[in-house]
């Protein structure tokens, strides 16, 4: 890699520009589909599909999985799964253009990769659990909710960021 692109690795868009485009995208999404964006939904569909593959009987009898399995249609055949495939591709294109592609574990120099991975796993489990309880994550509940002034969206947003600030002190060694 030449020096110019090496130096550009950390050059990101102006956050207000990125936010403005994201706002336009949310408007476009509502204009087209009547709904907002999402992310955790695709992971939920993946879990439902995996469990359904192992035991269809179990998914039908479970109060939660059974909401997402209907007839012969695959639980993967949902809008959010296709959207998330797009997200993967879009992020890959952006990363390629800026030379940010590569297998690595990103962490503060003060901690080990192993510690970073343990915390990443724990954080993921908690986020996955919380997103099911609140019926959506930062994208689906908070951001898309706020775009239509949903009370639940605002409550979820305040709860996510409020709690994260409250607990930031305990996790500081991982980041600063």
């Amino acid at each position: 890699m030449d020096k110019a692109s090496e130096n550009n690795k950390h050059v990101y868009w102006n956050p207000y520009f990125g936010g403005f485009l994201l706002g336009l995208l949310i408007i476009f999404t509502f204009y087209m589909t009547g709904r907002g964006l999402g992310a955790s939904g695709a992971m939920k569909s993946s879990v439902v599909t995996l469990v359904d593959k192992v035991s269809h009987e179990h998914t039908v009898n479970n109060g939660y999985y059974s909401k997402f399995v209907q007839g012969d249609e695959s639980p993967m055949n949902t809008w959010l799964v296709f959207e998330s495939l797009g997200v993967l591709a879009g992020a890959f294109i952006s990363g390629s253009l800026s030379g940010r592609i590569g297998f690595r574990v990103q962490h503060s120099p003060k901690i080990t990769s192993r510690r970073r991975l343990v915390f990443a796993l724990t954080g993921g489990v908690l986020f996955g659990l919380g997103a099911q309880i609140a019926r959506g994550c930062t994208s689906g509940a908070a951001l898309s909710g706020m775009a239509v002034l949903s009370t639940g969206g605002f409550i979820t947003m305040l709860a996510i960021f409020g709690t994260a600030y409250l607990f930031a002190y305990f996790f500081r060694k991982n980041w600063i």
Partner: peptide, 21 residues
């Protein structure tokens, strides 16, 4: 559900450093 789910996500966010998207 929004408050408790959001709170759990908040801890997950600061522990893991990402949200799903």
């Amino acid at each position: 559900a929004a408050i408790i789910g959001g709170a759990i996500m908040g801890v997950g966010f600061v522990a893991g450093g990402f949200c799903p998207g």
